[in-house]
Nucleic acid binder design. Structure first.
Lengths: 122, 122
DNA sequence: AGGTTATATAACTGTCAAGTTATATTGATA
DNA sequence: TATCAATATAACTTGACAGTTATATAACCT
């Protein structure tokens, strides 16, 4: 039901909506215009974003105005943290070296032939 | 076929595999032991991770040893970048203020009653 | 009250992803 | 060479999700 923040961000339209809300708040109707989606489609995504705590709503006359609440993105940032030290190529090389200290023989990886599929014959 | 980095990371088992590879390289068999998955299940995830450039393989006897290649995660970090300024509560409040300058009347949001569903009667 | 506007939800549909089992491929070894 | 060990792929099944249309809800306006 309520999905992980990673799953929420996996959907491109949702990232698009967040990007739009980063600039300024938008009503549902405005978001419909900015996306390729139907109105219910947008509302569905907004619900998921709301349940993830990434957006908040205000009512303004008949409209519902959504704005960004970026705080849950901190979780992504935290997950990323221990990976940061691997990013530089130089550090990569160092890692590699440390890993390979305990290794024996290393052979080049041969290209694997595709398996025989259903329709294949020879 | 090849999925976005966000989709790749949306799958919990794949994040788990990356976490394991962050500590040290692992053979497929080792990863099978560390996860709840069948061997083909692990291989399938490894293929997706490979196609995303997040892991690399070496052959060692019959084994295939996978190691982390974290570089593609930079894309996530970059995506996150423009959101960082929203994280602090203080900045949030400032944003809010700026947004609300152009607003008129603001009313509290009433709780919406659930719609009538198929099986409902009165 | 009745009509209009704006949005949320229900119900349905089709696609795809993730898991499985069975099998092919490849390297090592007896 | 026959067998074992390790892994990748094929084929299949299932469930979840994203999209749709139709409709309910709610606020505004006359």
């Amino acid at each position: 039901m309520t999905s992980s923040i990673f799953e929420v961000l996996a959907e491109p339209n949702r990232r698009r909506i967040l990007d739009l809300l980063r600039e300024r708040e938008h009503s549902v109707g405005e978001l419909v215009k900015e996306t390729q989606l139907s109105q219910p489609g947008v509302s569905k995504h907004l619900r998921i974003l709301r349940e993830a705590g990434l957006v908040e709503v205000r009512q303004k006359a008949q409209k519902r105005v959504y704005h960004l609440h970026a705080e849950p993105l901190v979780e992504i940032d935290k997950w990323l943290e221990p990976y940061r030290r691997f990013w530089s190529d130089k550090l990569d090389a160092l890692e590699k070296l440390l890993n390979e200290e305990n290794e024996e023989e290393i052979r080049p990886l041969p290209q694997q032939r595709p398996l025989k599929k259903k329709g294949d014959f020879e």
